[in-house]
């Protein structure tokens, strides 16, 4: 529960709480065993014979369901954050995400990228990269400032462009989307 509160109040991906998750899983198993033990005490032919025991088993059941819901919601939110990261920043996880994600989450991220790539290649007929131009452009060309030296790049519409630090260019955003996502180019006036 504490891990869920921490995740909720944080905007990034907190460290994966391996110990707490293992403890929560163990508690779920214990609750299941406790519920089974109590149900065995109730005679098969009369379910209402021991109401105080069946009520106790009912609490076990509610607690078990609650713990499962907390665990599911926790992992679902972490997966959503990894997916959102991909759409905002591309397929290279930042250092903090890499450190804080569990191995399974890193695998999930890789598999998610593979799935998007597979979809782009096979399902989209007009050979469109679905990861670019996430926002509709206001103009054909965007005014972009170079934050980090990129050097000479070749762009399909304009040919060779030297993207050196602090220079400003009018370019098609879709052509340089990878640099914008990596934070090397920023759109001016946005």
């Amino acid at each position: 529960m504490e891990a869920l509160s921490i995740l909720h109040s944080s905007k990034v991906l907190p460290e994966y709480p391996t110990y707490e998750i293992r403890q929560a899983t163990k508690d779920i198993n214990d609750l299941h065993d406790s519920m089974e033990r109590k149900l065995k005490e109730i005679p098969d032919d009369d379910a209402t014979a021991k109401p105080e025991i069946s009520a106790s088993a009912l609490i076990d059941h509610y607690k078990l369901e609650r713990s499962k819901r907390v665990l599911y919601a926790y992992h679902d939110e972490r997966c959503n954050r990894l997916e959102r990261y991909f759409w905002r920043h591309g397929n290279e996880l930042s250092e903090s995400f890499q450190t804080n994600a569990s191995k399974q989450e890193t695998d999930y991220f890789k598999n998610y990228i593979n799935l998007i790539e597979e979809y782009s290649q096979n399902a989209v007929e007009c050979n469109l990269d679905i990861t670019t131009t996430m926002e509709p452009p206001r103009e054909l060309l965007a005014k972009l400032r170079v934050i980090e030296d990129i050097g000479e790049v070749y762009l399909p519409d304009v040919g060779s462009v030297n993207l050196e630090k602090n220079s400003v260019h009018y370019l098609k955003k879709a052509d340089v989307e990878q640099f914008i996502k990596a934070g090397k180019l920023i759109e001016m006036g946005s």
Binding site: M1, S5, L7, H8, E52, I53, A55, I59, Y72, E77
Partner: peptide
Amino acid sequence: YWSIDTILAEEQKIKCSMLTSIH
């Protein structure tokens, strides 16, 4: 089911009185 806000909201402690006995 998946809403973290709902989960956290339902952690609020509420005063109750027992209507039956529970082991």
